[in-house]
Design a protein around this nucleic acid. Structure first.
Ligand SMILES: [Mn+2]
Ligand SMILES: [Mn+2]
Ligand SMILES: [Zn+2]
Ligand SMILES: [Zn+2]
Lengths: 140, 140
DNA sequence: CTATTAATTAGACGAAGTCTATTTACGTAT
DNA sequence: ATACGTAAATAGACTTCGTCTAATTAATAG
């Protein structure tokens, strides 16, 4: 797990990050990485596609492939809180989420602010991937 | 909040349940309610549509409208864990979820088995709707 | 350079869900 | 019971997000 999580990342830093995570650094992947690692944020695939296509073109298929690959390799985290789209989270540190169901906004909650003091015992053949805590809220 | 949560529910019980939650008990709504309240379970809209259309027909629009209405009135709970579909949960008691990301299975975790001992302080103009804990696991 | 493999692409396709315009059912008054 | 006004249901077009396929292009090794 990457703990030094600096933002923004230069192009060169993105390249080393990809290599670290065993991802061949192609043009398109570097560009997508540069967008999402510019700051800790939550972006949908559509948003990434739009951002990346401000300058030259990356295909929809490649954006989806790349985000899926990044997630598989642990470079981004998929956040499933909105029934209509997946958010890709560039914040690699352990944290939880605050979701405004009225506006669709998604905010991080530092993991120190949430403490889970008891979890169920699970059969030994089961691996825990993640324990997600989502606080669903709305304004007034 | 309904605490006596008995399953299965007879047709007559479904009718009173709908009335309790200020839902006009139409044929279609009773039928959908009868299906989902037959036991504590998690069903997608497509599954409800299929189940309900074993005998006579209820339209897709009505199934979606009805499940949305039930959720809005607090008769079912929407569970968002799978990026491809919403689950409607007929278990009204407070509980959390175990999600098998490899198979898509969803299981309940009784709320006694999870203890959250610290939550962040939130601005006073924010209402908490729910605190969801999702344990994402996979087998071996 | 050549061969092999990996990655990208356009656009067709699919699944889940929404919307619109019309029809049907329901509730109330006469 | 009939008429009227509102609520609910319906078919099917449509949208959005995401996947797949078949063809092209780029990277890598020899
Ligand atoms: Mn949705
Ligand atoms: Mn998906
Ligand atoms: Zn986050
Ligand atoms: Zn449940």
């Amino acid at each position: 797990m990457d703990e030094k999580a600096e933002f923004p990342k230069s192009r060169a830093e993105v390249v080393s990050l990809l290599k670290e995570y065993d991802i061949t650094p192609t043009h398109q992947r570097i560009k997508i990485g540069h967008v999402i690692f510019s700051q800790p944020q939550h972006m949908s695939a559509e948003q990434v596609l739009a951002a990346v296509n401000q300058s030259d073109e990356v295909s929809k298929a490649t954006v989806y492939n790349t985000l899926g690959l990044f997630a598989k390799q642990g470079l981004v985290r998929e956040v499933i809180v909105d029934p209509s789209k997946v958010f890709y989270d560039s914040n690699l540190s352990k944290h939880h989420h605050l979701y405004y169901s009225d506006t669709g906004e998604l905010e991080d909650i530092a993991s120190e602010h949430v403490k889970i003091s008891k979890l169920p015992e699970l059969p030994s053949d089961i691996q825990i991937e993640d324990v997600d805590v989502i606080i669903r809220v709305h304004r007034n």
